[in-house]
């Protein structure tokens, strides 16, 4: 079929719209001058400043702590939940509950959790952000794992059960290996979402040292400097690499599973 030629235009316009700001952002990070607006020559000095900025480094460490811990919780809970929902219940209500954190506006979840911690008289800190992030991460892990479960062949599981294996044995020996690529994809998704999450962390972090998105937010509120551009460029590089690597990994995983 003939491809409508005119459609090139909106596609490339979209690409320009999406990448032009990023390109400018990265270019300005190499600015030798003090301003983020006028380019005064090439320099790497802002990257140096960045590495010496304790706030940024500690923000990065805190973000990683939160992302790793919440992903760990969410991967376990989300995987179990996905299997339970796909194999052991037809309840639409349970389905909706499991999906809800993924569609609820972050502001609502952030405020609800803040009120919960206040009502329980809980001290806020990194632990509360971890618990909070695990809420939406669980939903995403469960959703990703489920798509694999619904597509998966159940005959192996049935055979295992027919041979007298209990549900737990079947899960560990048969279902889990089949699900591994889905679990990894879900965990990666949860990890990336937690790395970038701002609103919920903003409400539930209390007095603890801020995560990186919160650090960036307050840097921006206090003005525009090429140091933020340098930080942005590094983060862009990291997340682009991660996404492309993730894409490769799932492809390899899929082709293996198909073999």
């Amino acid at each position: 079929m003939r491809r409508p030629k005119l459609l090139h235009v909106p596609f490339w316009a979209t690409i320009v719209f999406l990448y032009l700001p990023i390109a400018v952002l990265v270019a300005m990070s190499f600015n030798a001058g003090e301003s983020a607006y006028t380019f005064e020559g090439f320099s790497l000095k802002w990257y140096g400043e960045l590495l010496a900025d304790e706030r940024v480094i500690s923000g990065l460490v805190n973000t990683l702590i939160v992302a790793v811990s919440s992903t760990a919780i969410a991967t376990v809970l989300g995987t179990l939940l996905a299997v339970g929902l796909a194999r052991y219940t037809r309840s639409k209500i349970l389905d909706a509950v499991a999906l809800m954190p993924a569609v609820l506006p972050d502001l609502v979840l952030g405020i609800g959790l803040l009120m919960l911690f206040i009502t329980l008289n809980q001290t806020l800190g990194h632990h509360s952000v971890i618990l909070a992030h695990a809420v939406f991460s669980t939903a995403f892990v469960a959703a990703v794992v489920r798509t694999r479960l619904t597509g998966a062949d159940t005959s192996l599981e049935e055979a295992s059960r027919d041979l007298g294996a209990g549900p737990v044995t079947t899960f560990v020996k048969v279902t889990l290996p089949q699900l591994t690529p889905g679990i990894i994809a879900g965990a990666l998704l949860a990890f990336t979402l937690s790395l970038d999450e701002f609103v919920i962390a903003f409400f539930t972090i209390g007095n603890a040292d801020p995560t990186l998105p919160i650090v960036i937010y307050s840097m921006i509120r206090f003005g525009v400097t090429p140091e933020i551009n340098a930080l942005a460029s590094i983060l862009l590089l990291v997340s682009f690499t991660a996404v492309i690597a993730g894409q490769r990994l799932t492809k390899i995983g899929e082709s293996r599973a198909q073999d």
Partner: peptide, 14 residues
């Protein structure tokens, strides 16, 4: 932001 940290019950640690 300071009030967000302080005006919550429990021990803010501060």
């Amino acid at each position: 932001t300071a009030m967000k940290k302080l005006a919550v019950p429990g021990d803010s640690g501060i």
